[in-house]
Design a protein around this nucleic acid. Sequence first.
DNA 1: GGACGGAACATCTCTAGACATCTCCAGCGA
DNA 2: TCGCTGGAGATGTCTAGAGATGTTCCGTCC
Lengths: 246, 246
Amino acid sequence: MTEPKYQRIAATLKAAIAEGEYGPGDRLPGENDLMAAHGVARMTARQALGVLQSEGIAEARKGAGVFVRTFHPLRRRGIQRLTREAWGSGRSVWSVDATDRDVVVDQIRVGEEPAAEHIARVLGLVADEPVCVRDRRFVLDGKPVLLSTSSLPAGLVAGSPITRPDTGPGGIYARLAELGHEPVHFREEVRSRMPTSDETARLALPGGTPVLLVCRTAFTQDGSAVEVNEMVLDANSYILEYDFDA
Amino acid sequence: MTEPKYQRIAATLKAAIAEGEYGPGDRLPGENDLMAAHGVARMTARQALGVLQSEGIAEARKGAGVFVRTFHPLRRRGIQRLTREAWGSGRSVWSVDATDRDVVVDQIRVGEEPAAEHIARVLGLVADEPVCVRDRRFVLDGKPVLLSTSSLPAGLVAGSPITRPDTGPGGIYARLAELGHEPVHFREEVRSRMPTSDETARLALPGGTPVLLVCRTAFTQDGSAVEVNEMVLDANSYILEYDFDA
DNA sequence: GGACGGAACATCTCTAGACATCTCCAGCGA
DNA sequence: TCGCTGGAGATGTCTAGAGATGTTCCGTCC
């Protein structure tokens, strides 16, 4: 019935943060402070701090202390980036940094692979048929924020710049159009979950940070899919925006 | 340099799950099993199991054991639900249950409150000006999956069915249209983070489950916002889908 | 056949201490 | 002034045990 000690301690810390006693980036009371203040064992104090870390409220830096996390999201416009319309005004609920900071490609790997089962199904291929895979990592101010894996039917893009790291002006969609497979319709599917250990490493994620999964499928006029792009986003770095008319 | 024991143990468990040795819903080796198998202390075995839980791979049921989690997402179409267009075909990347199971309202609270600062800014109100708030919880098969908090300028909707629990056919958008404030444009902003303890309680979330935050703003023809709907979704229960043309 | 009780077993909470490893900063030396 | 080196202090990992609490299941009793 009674609340465990570690939850009570965690609650007091959360309350103090909510009160503004500790702001973003500030150092929280550490294990030793909590042991003294609440008269508990080290493991109990650790458990309390662990609650805040697993909720993404705080972040421990080994040897330094436990600090309140910050939230500086990027805004990613899912639709305007692929059309050129502009609805323009209308304030946003979340405050945005005025400057659209620039995200740049950090790592890139282009190659040909047998298609995974779920990719082959969408692209209308038989399993293990080759696909052109473009695997990229994007960084913002040195911090990786996005992993993107794009798959296209290998037979469709063979010999085109799509199979090379630099696809030229307009990117792969412009090249697809030149090949007679212009994408005219897109579908984005969005999920969220905790990262795998591989994603944690590649995105340098602190504990308690989920990832957003965005899977975009590009369709041509005849309704066939020509590209599947699976993206993994640091949830702490992104707001996805979708604007559309009724 | 050497990997901690608890991570090694966690890795073996993950590998066993990936190998199919343990399927969704199966019981994993418990604390006592891991202590005996790897010759470690109880807290170390707990730490290993904690890794899988915080990654959302496993779920502990007190007194029963630790079990592999399942993933049965609902598909929420962000655009088609608000328009009537249908692109129709085109396979999805994630397998979907054929039946569109039905989500029903479980709790509802309608009232008038002073507007929060970020709501007032979007709706073009001064701070603390009253807004009509519709707070709802949706359940699927008895499990809560979605919290929705809709805010509208109180002056705009006073006396209309919007201020009552049952808004009638077509919902609040049909009522807004009748009042001369038909929404013609929508914006959805999507984020993800770990849940607050309040959200954990209201959605009955197991550990290691993030939430998706969807904030929808409805605009009328003249570009003014008439509704802000802040939704909290169990990330383990939802796939958000956005379909649009280039 | 059904209800109840209890034992076995599971996770959860917490203690007290040990050693490892990393960070930060002050002080020293070139 | 610059750079290196300690050392203090912080978190990370791990042990060995104890009691609390919830679940499961089987045998007994009605």
